[in-house]
Computed example of a mutant assay.
Amino acid sequence: MTRAHGTLARYHVDKCRCELCCARKSSYHTGRTRQIAYGRWQPYAAPESARAHVAYLIGYGLSINTIADMAGVDHECVSDLMSDAHERGLLPASAEALLSVRFDLDLVPGRSFIDAAGTRRRVQALATLGHSVKSQATALGRLANNFNDVVTQVRVFAYTARQVRDLYDEWSSNPPPDTHGAKVARTLAARKKWLPPAAWDDDWIDLTDAALEIELRRQAELMGDVEVRRCYDAFRKKGERSPLVVAAAREYDRRLYRKQVAFA
């Protein structure tokens, strides 16, 4: 985990003594001394921002322990934060360290478990193009029988998620030759109603199922009545199944129901 220079987290956790980090440490202590003199010293940071940020990271499938490791803070610190046990607040260095963590698959320790939703969606999306699960496994140097589990597992190693992501980036715009194996893969994907790459937004594909549902509903609620009606028609009449279209169709149903109740 690479933290920005000029932060308390970089100074305390990473032991960096560059000019920027030392200046931030000095500024902190100067401000601390002044606030103590004025009787306004608050040694703890409010936990709300850090708690909301950790919840955001959990929405991408990172566990509390993984987030703590990436921030360089004790596991118990993050566990207490999310269970609202930090009555006094967080130490500023801990708050800064947690807020500095970003969901970047390349920064997650390889042997850390993360939610498998993004990995599963990518494998399935490639199958809709004709890239069978077996061909994906072969390209990654994995055993097909073991790799099949990726489609059903709840969590996967971060290094597996990175492998699948990189393969997806390479193959998602390149359908394979129209072989018998490709046809079988597309038929299976269609039967299972897997979604193609075009259905997935880069900002959503790695969200957990629960976090995705919340985000899609939020986006749908922001749509105008005409827009949700168009999505409803696309879903009901044309069979469009991209996540946002489906969420907007459900929002149309909710609005229609509310109108019917209002006029009842």
Rank of each mutant, 00 (worst) to 15 (best):
Y28A: 06
L57E: 07
A71E: 00
L62H: 03
G61N: 00
V78K: 11
R34M: 11
I58S: 03
G72I: 10
A68E: 02
K25A: 12
S26G: 11
M70V: 01
K25N: 10
Y38F: 14
R32H: 00
S79M: 09
G72M: 05
P47I: 01
A52R: 12
A46V: 07
V54I: 06
D80E: 12
G59R: 07
Y38E: 15
A37C: 05
S27K: 14
Q42V: 11
K25M: 11
V78F: 11
I58C: 08
Y28S: 07
K25V: 07
Y60M: 03
I58L: 10
H53V: 06
I64C: 07
V78W: 11
Y44S: 03
I36H: 02
A52Y: 04
E48K: 06
G59A: 07
T30M: 02
G61H: 00
S27Q: 11
Q35Y: 05
S49V: 15
W41Q: 00
G39Y: 08
M70Q: 01
A23R: 14
T66P: 03
R51Q: 14
V78G: 03
S79G: 06
Y56M: 14
Q35L: 12
D80P: 02
K25S: 12
G31Y: 07
S63H: 12
R32W: 07
V54Y: 02
E48G: 07
D69G: 09
L57R: 03
V54E: 00
R40W: 06
R51N: 04
P43N: 04
A71S: 08
I58E: 09
M70A: 01
A71V: 03
H29E: 10
M70G: 01
E48A: 13
A71Q: 03
W41C: 02
W41Y: 09
L62M: 12
T33H: 15
R34T: 13
Q42A: 10
A52E: 10
G61A: 08
